[in-house]
Design a binder for these strands. Structure first.
Lengths: 100, 100
DNA sequence: TGTATATTTGGCAAAATATGCAAATAGGTC
DNA sequence: GACCTATTTGCATATTTTGCCAAATATACA
């Protein structure tokens, strides 16, 4: 009953973690855990160039972390991989407990 | 009661995810979830140069994911951030459900 | 002391990533 | 149609990551 993890699964999984492994992207994901936002809101949140934000969002979408929909001129992003929200809590709590 | 996440927390958290965001590192972490291993065992697992494995392990240790102890000639690494094991399961299960 | 083994570190080249600016898209409005 | 706005894409550059080889460490053993 050992669940065997294939190389493909490791790679897909690593892609998710890699996508989360950037402060700006993590901050945006955390914000999106509270509901969908448009790119301009996220841009204001992280304070990077709009084009840079757009690229970060593309990374997260490609990894399967986010979904997006277009409405008029705006693009709205939302959390697709729901468990990511608890991942964040988990890591923050663990680290916290150690650091103080 | 809103838990405010500081910039430092985001960065520490991102460092953890970043450390997990590489297939070889993820594979080693998954193996270490089953108990501590020496570097040579992990080297065999991932099939990279020993020096490369050592550096990967250093990344994980720096992020707080792994701990290490030295005994004789051998260095043993073990999982320090326990929740990481369930993170992996969480992401793999989510992705799996979507892909097939 | 010398030798063997496990691990880490220094150096380097190739590849990937991050970022901003400018240009291209796409969808609105007049 | 022309114009405005939000977003994405092309390009250039700086930085980081990855991987190996070779050298340095450290520890055990004879």
């Amino acid at each position: 009953m050992e669940p065997i993890i294939t190389e493909n699964q490791f790679e897909g999984c690593a892609e998710v973690f890699k996508a989360l492994g950037h402060p700006a992207r993590l901050r945006m994901v955390h914000s999106l855990a509270g509901g969908e936002r448009c790119v301009c809101e996220l841009q204001e949140l992280v304070g990077l160039d709009m084009s840079t934000v757009s690229r970060h969002l593309a990374v997260l979408k490609k990894a399967g972390v986010l979904a997006s929909r277009k409405q008029g001129n705006w693009a709205y992003y939302s959390l697709e991989l729901g468990c990511v929200a608890s991942l964040l809590d988990c890591v923050i709590n663990k680290k916290q407990r150690k650091e103080r």
